[in-house]
């Protein structure tokens, strides 16, 4: 899975088959916080200037973070 050819520094959180994968491209992320604020289950948080996963278990894979990310920086599957 890739967003663009030069996808780099992919941080993949894989904790077994039943848990969602949240991929954050730290090169693309600008830390605007939109994904954090619109996440209905409070999965994400700011770490430094970038977004990070805080509570993966709560993720419902609704993909709101992806759909409202202006920077092609986060995907959930």
């Amino acid at each position: 899975m890739k967003i663009a050819e030069d996808l780099s520094r992919v941080e993949e959180t894989e904790k077994g088959d039943d848990l969602p994968n949240i991929v954050i491209n730290e090169t693309y992320c600008k830390g605007c916080g939109i994904c954090i604020d619109f996440c209905p289950t409070d999965v994400l948080e700011m770490r430094g200037n970038l977004v990070a996963v805080k509570n993966l278990e709560a993720c419902t894979k609704c993909q709101l973070c992806d759909l409202r990310c202006p920077d092609f920086a986060i995907q959930v599957f």
């Binding site: 899975m1 967003i3 663009a4 969602p20 419902t60 894979k61 609704c62 992806d66 959930v76």
Partner: peptide, 12 residues
């Protein structure tokens, strides 16, 4: 539910 509704759209 932990099931994915859909695979994420591939913009590439």
């Amino acid at each position: 539910t932990k099931k994915a509704k859909q695979t994420p759209f591939d913009y590439s």
